[in-house]
């Protein structure tokens, strides 16, 4: 993503395990390099561009949730 000054910032974001992600509708074809998607993350506390994914909105509007409800 680009920051406020227009610089490209690379984020690293984690999900849950494959069993959970498949149950949530994710699969290996959900993304490919170059796709523009909107990601909501819960960032780490120290301000680095790292976080846990809450959801992803694909270019076609499809929403992929990433949180398991216990």
């Amino acid at each position: 993503m680009k920051d406020d000054k227009g610089n490209v910032v690379h984020w690293a974001a984690e999900t849950s395990n494959p069993s959970d992600m498949v149950n949530l509708g994710w699969n290996k074809q959900s993304f490919k390099p170059g796709d523009e998607v909107t990601v909501t993350v819960e960032p780490v506390k120290n301000g680095l561009p790292i976080g846990r994914i809450e959801q992803v909105v694909l270019a076609n509007g499809q929403i992929l949730k990433a949180r398991v409800v216990f």
Partner: peptide
């Protein structure tokens, strides 16, 4: 606080046991 980011080439961690019978 949640944050929305728009990214190209999503750098997802392979969803193994990483989130950490």
């Amino acid at each position: 606080m949640l944050r929305h980011i728009l990214i190209a080439a999503l750098a997802l961690i392979p969803p193994g046991m990483l989130a950490s019978p």
